[in-house]
Nucleic acid binder design. Sequence first.
DNA 1: ATAATACCTTAACCTGACTTTAGGTCAAGT
DNA 2: ACTTGACCTAAAGTCAGGTTAAGGTATTAT
Lengths: 148, 148
Amino acid sequence: MYTIGQISEMFDIPVSTLRYYDREGLFPDLQRCSGIRRFTEKEIEILHVIECLKMSGLEIRDIRQFVRWCSQGNQTYEKRYDLLQKRRAVIEDELEQMKKALDMIRFKCWYYEQAMEDGNEERLNKMLPDKLPEEIQALYDHAHEKSR
Amino acid sequence: MYTIGQISEMFDIPVSTLRYYDREGLFPDLQRCSGIRRFTEKEIEILHVIECLKMSGLEIRDIRQFVRWCSQGNQTYEKRYDLLQKRRAVIEDELEQMKKALDMIRFKCWYYEQAMEDGNEERLNKMLPDKLPEEIQALYDHAHEKSR
DNA sequence: ATAATACCTTAACCTGACTTTAGGTCAAGT
DNA sequence: ACTTGACCTAAAGTCAGGTTAAGGTATTAT
């Protein structure tokens, strides 16, 4: 069992945020001893899940819905499963976009390395958009691909 | 040359958002014909960059700084390069966290598939935290790893 | 001619996710 | 006895990133 301060350290989340999460109903089974919150493994697992679902862009109220289902027993397995499948799709998509963004940034890093060497972008501009060195071209093309 | 409406379609960004970006100084060289914005390849490239930098968590005002440097010529290559290097680190980090989140969600999907088959979580709870099937265990462990 | 459509501006409004403020309880250390 | 530190609440405040509203112009279709 942990105090709010210990959990705050453990997850590197401000105490005020943990209290806010509690207020928003994210810890439906949180126990208290004379007013003081007692976090257990249950709440720790919820916090892991919160971090993942937040990453996938889920809003607090939908996370609340999920954790509520969790404390409602085995009638809600399907609902929880469906939500997670949707989040999986979202996060897989986001991951792809991130990779694109990363390739763009890698390309730009190369670009400015060259620009700094040359002192200008003349040589570089002649190489755009399709006469870049093979590896760099791959980054550039990936970054400029249309999604969907 | 494109109108704001065409760019809106092209990037699937609301017209109001494009105007907001303009107001915030994200298109420092945007031309107008009798009041009407004329977007060119230059602004299109900026929008690609905006999307990447936003992904990396950069705020509008810092994106503005970057595009300003871009329209200030070759004295700012180093500044642009430094910013991009930092963003690269950030996005690589985020990508790792995303992968963790995805593995958590994949684990949970498997978990609820099993729970739905069994009708309860008894068998599953006996497998936690380290007696899961090999592949699933890998997802679980990765998702619960401490960062840094 | 008039109606529809696409553009424009400024200013107010909204939302989500926190954070801060102001005030209070309680236990341990000096 | 009293100060420190960790906990508590309710309510107000903040901030980024848009969005909406209200009012206007300019071009094209009927």
